[in-house]
Nucleic acid binder design. Structure first.
Length: 677
DNA sequence: GCAATGAGCGTC
DNA sequence: ACGCTCATTGCT
């Protein structure tokens, strides 16, 4: 390192003296360019020596302009052999970036072929000076170890909590039993970590879940130690709570997606609940997923990890299969005792209800009977309908098996656009673009295709007619009669234990006091026919979410699902066997070469930009290119590699992005790993 | 032969 | 968005 005075510009003002101790500051500058995705060294003037602590926010001069930065570390010397600039100023001595989160941000950026600045923007909230000036509270003492009776119902449940109490890095995949008070069990796990003097972090899909779990945690560890972090707080409240966590006062953090980066001090337990919910996938670059970030954190910190839910994702199944995590699943007797009675009715084989009103509501007789019984009992009935709107998809005209591409097994769809001379355009693969002119169903040999269309959610009105005199309540997009796209209709948190029909879209199911008497899961075949990769898994997850809110069979609880009982997700629902379903789903994806059995990157941009990026990328030799397919303004290419080459794929794409930004290439390419095609 | 001016580029 | 380099220009 050479320390030279800056010439002319500030010569007259005199040079500040560098700090006597550790005069070099390693700074991460807020410049979102791939080829600058590394730290830069600055000199600390003696006047800032005390404030310029690792983790603090700074302003520095970078390529002539003032930019924000985060000070990563103080060093005795730099390995940069040019001249060093002095720090502009220390914005605040608050060490907002912990060493753990800094390491995590680098690892997450690398995994997703993204920039560390982008991850840091997700991890460190904007400063709120007034809040920062408030006197910090004192950290409460660790709570006593809670009772964990709820976990004793599960084989290895108590063993997992013992490991958490002992500070061992246990990893588990947990499927909660039907009707389980899972917020209580998550709180017990978090309080166990807290009782050992460690932090805990629980990430859930939406704020209703956060509220329930936070309430349960508060009961066990107290008001001060339990912190809820959700996106709907204003900037001040959000920063106040976040700072309390960073300062080690809030030890048990319960939050939605962005909380995955919460700077919990000395984390002993990391939990993701319902990891199949797509709310866990961050929508901003580099598009990290909560489950993957927490796995990364568990690796780096030695914290225990719990990947939990009613259903099990293919990704969680992979954790079990690889031996990285062990499973925590209730035994059959526990499940049988807790589950409602579940009946499947194929949608073309049902016995129509006798009365016209029920017929028009598209309800099979069994469903009508189940609902009437529950209502007669004074219990609410849950009616789950798929989201409104239309989804263009193709299925076999005879057996309704979804139509897939022969080359890459991607979903076939009719391309948008008008018919030409009265002839419809032929179907094409949404992944690789191959046109299918002579479709033959692999399941039944039929050559016919049918469009699969999910109709608007008109169920609420029809149900009102089918069950005269019964109050109908709605939750989610089904509500308000606002048509298929009334997506912002009110979502109810709970409904009382009274006779009512509760019509909801998936994800908006209110909890019922004492449980629902029955649940009707409608239009299942349409949900299963959706295009995307996760359709089967997602449908099953939604069904389980609804069915878990229903009373046990012994208390009269019934679930009627309108779908063919031969289908795997229907079987898995009837038997309440999420582990089996995950194994079947993962096997199918392995067979077809789908994630998570492989790793995929999606490249979006203009054809020229994508070609340029691919030209600059030294992809692993195993890489397969699929596409291009039209996407938005430009097009999309997919790159597929075996799992083992995921890291090589990410680093190749990051390096290629760096080449392009260094060259000031005009059109950007969006790189998204693990994108759902 | 050499200052004056401008475009391009890296960025501590 | 600054200050560095290196090219081109224009004048003696």
């Amino acid at each position: 390192m050479t320390v030279r005075a800056r010439p002319s510009a500030s010569a007259g003002l005199g040079q500040p003296a560098p700090a006597a101790e550790l005069p070099v500051a390693r700074v991460w500058v807020d410049v979102p360019l791939s080829h600058l995705d590394r730290p830069f060294d600055y000199l600390v003037p003696e006047s800032m020596a005390a404030d310029a602590v690792p983790g603090c926010r700074v302003r520095v001069r970078f390529a002539g302009r003032q930019v924000h930065g985060l000070l990563l570390d103080r060093l005795a010397e730099s390995d940069h052999d040019g001249r060093l600039e002095f720090l502009g100023r220390v914005v605040s001595p608050e060490p907002v970036l912990s060493a753990e989160v800094a390491t995590l941000a680098r690892a997450v950026a690398d995994r997703y072929a993204g920039l560390m600045v982008d991850v840091l923007r997700l991890a460190v909230p904007p400063r709120h000076a007034k809040v920062e000036a408030e006197p910090p509270g004192a950290p409460p003492p660790p709570p006593p170890r809670p009772g964990t009776a709820g976990w004793a119902r599960y084989p290895r449940g108590t063993a997992f909590l013992d490991a958490v109490a002992a500070g061992r890095p246990a990893h588990a995949v947990w499927q909660a039993a039907p009707g389980e008070d899972w917020p209580r069990l998550l709180a017990e796990a978090a309080a166990t970590a807290a009782s050992a003097g460690r932090g805990a972090l629980i990430v859930l899909p939406d704020y209703r879940d956060v509220e329930r779990v936070h309430a349960a945690c508060t009961a066990l560890v107290g008001e001060t130690a339990a912190v809820a972090l959700t996106a709907d707080l204003g900037p001040a409240r959000r920063y106040r709570r976040w700072l309390a966590v960073r300062r080690g006062i809030g030890r048990v953090v319960v939050g939605t997606r962005a909380a995955m980066f919460a700077p919990v001090a000395d984390p002993g337990l990391l939990v993701v609940w319902d990891d199949g919910d797509d709310l866990h996938a961050e929508q901003r670059a580099p598009y990290p997923h909560v489950r993957e970030v927490l796995i990364q954190r568990a690796h780096a910190t030695g914290a225990a990890l719990l990947c939990a839910g009613l259903a099990r994702t293919s990704e969680a199944q992979l954790l079990v299969d690889s031996g990285w995590a062990h499973e925590i699943v209730a035994g059959r007797p526990v499940v049988r005792q807790a589950a409602p009675r579940i009946t499947a009715i194929g949608d073309d084989a049902w016995e129509q209800a006798r009365d016209q009103a029920a017929r028009s509501a598209r309800l099979p007789l069994v469903a009508v009977d189940a609902a009437r019984e529950a209502l007669a009992d004074g219990a609410p009935v849950l009616v789950q309908v798929p989201r409104g709107g239309y989804v263009p998809a193709l299925a076999c005209g005879q057996c309704r098996t979804r139509a897939r591409c022969r080359r890459c097994a991607g979903p076939l769809a009719l391309p948008a656009g008008e018919v030409r001379d009265g002839d419809p355009r032929p179907p094409a693969c949404r992944w690789c673009g191959v046109v299918e002119t002579s479709f033959v169903c692999p399941a039944c040999g039929s050559r016919r295709l049918r469009a699969v269309v999910v109709g608007a959610a008109r169920t609420a009105e029809e149900l009102g007619r089918a069950f005269p005199g019964v109050p109908v309540r709605t939750s989610g997009a089904a509500g308000g009669g606002g048509g298929p796209d009334a997506a912002d209709a009110a979502v109810l948190s709970s409904v009382p234990a009274r006779r009512a029909l509760v019509v909801c879209t998936p994800g908006a199911e209110p909890v019922a006091e004492g449980g629902y008497g029955a649940a009707l899961l409608l239009d299942g075949w349409a949900m299963l026919a959706r295009l995307d990769l996760r359709a089967t898994e997602e449908t099953y997850r939604r069904w389980l979410t609804a069915a878990a809110l229903v009373r046990p069979a012994a208390a009269g609880g019934r679930v009627v699902v309108v779908a063919d009982s031969a289908l795997a997700p229907v079987q898995a629902l009837i038997r309440w066997d999420p582990a089996w379903h995950a194994a079947v789903e993962l096997a199918a994806r392995t067979e077809l070469g789908f994630p998570p059995a492989v790793r995929m990157a999606a490249l979006d941009g203009t054809p020229a930009a994508i070609a340029d990026l691919l030209g600059a990328a030294r992809l692993p030799p195993t890489a397969e290119l699929l596409g291009p397919v039209p996407a938005g303004d430009g097009e999309r290419m997919l790159v597929r590699v075996p799992r083992a080459d995921g890291r090589a794929l990410a680093s190749a794409l990051a390096a290629a992005q760096a080449v392009r930004t260094a060259r000031k290439a005009a059109d950007p390419v969006r790189v998204q790993l693990d994108a759902t095609p």
